[in-house]
């Protein structure tokens, strides 16, 4: 395989709160033999404004995005909702939109499952597919649809030694984060988070794994508030565990 020049797009809240998710993503891509760079002037893709309906306010942010990422073969981001915004909602140039990948789809579709380094995570986990991963990026078909089943995140996790997946009831139900929704409809959002964390705990999982850290931030915050004992990890963190960790 030809090594690619990858521009790493780390969304603002991962940058600030989840440094280790950024590190895991970076290391994983490097272990696959690619040249990974993190353009230091990056800020955001414009999603918060776009989702609130403020399209005009997105433009300057998008111009900056182009300046930061135009030179790379691929732009990879460990967040489905940000990639969905870039690809489907932004006014970014087509060439940029086509080269922007969410991490799971990049690993599954571009790299190929077999090329992944061995990983080891001897725990019971439950998978949280974010709504964008499910209904906009096709990580799995939305369960409402009557179409053949496939799963990109499960295909990746199947390769992780010692890992067991258990199912959460109402797995496809939105956890209630929803960006600005989490504060403009704080009560409903919080209740959805509480319900989600309660069902996750009932699944018997030790960890919740997801490709979307924003959902996990909300779920983790809900679990902590309600005294629910659950740990939340990004899928990059699991895929980047080394077999020797055992």
């Amino acid at each position: 395989m030809i090594a690619m020049r990858i521009g790493l797009f780390i969304p603002c809240f991962i940058d600030l709160f989840y440094r280790d998710v950024g590190i895991a993503t970076l290391e994983l891509l490097e272990r696959l033999g690619h040249a990974v760079d993190y353009p230091a002037d990056q800020t955001c893709c414009g999603q918060p404004m776009g989702n609130a309906g403020f399209v005009a306010e997105c433009r300057a942010v998008e111009a900056l995005f182009v300046r930061n990422f135009d030179e790379y073969d691929a732009i990879v981001c460990p967040s489905a909702s940000c990639v969905h915004h870039v690809r489907h909602k932004s006014a970014l140039p087509d060439a940029i939109r086509a080269r922007t990948f969410e991490l799971v789809e990049f690993l599954h579709d571009v790299i190929g499952v077999d090329a992944l380094p061995p990983a080891f995570f001897p725990h019971r986990v439950t998978l949280h597919n974010s709504c964008t991963a499910l209904r906009s990026l096709d990580h799995e078909p939305a369960p409402e649809l009557n179409v053949p089943f496939f799963s990109k995140p499960r295909a990746l996790l199947a390769r992780v030694g010692g890992l067991e997946i258990v199912e959460t009831e109402r797995a496809d139900e939105c956890c209630g984060f929803g960006g600005t929704f989490s504060v403009s409809e704080a009560a409903v959002s919080a209740r959805m988070g509480q319900d989600k964390a309660t069902r996750q705990a009932a699944s018997g999982a030790e960890y919740v794994v997801s490709a979307d850290m924003s959902c996990l931030m909300h779920q983790g915050g809900s679990a902590a508030r309600h005294g629910i004992d659950m740990r939340y990890v990004h899928i990059a963190q699991i895929l980047n565990t080394k077999a020797v960790d055992a």
Partner: peptide, 18 residues
């Protein structure tokens, strides 16, 4: 405060990825 109503605020690691 709207966030804090029903959820804990995440613990930042003290260093950004940046």
């Amino acid at each position: 405060n709207a966030w804090g109503k029903g959820r804990e605020i995440p613990q930042a690691p003290g260093q950004s990825f940046h």
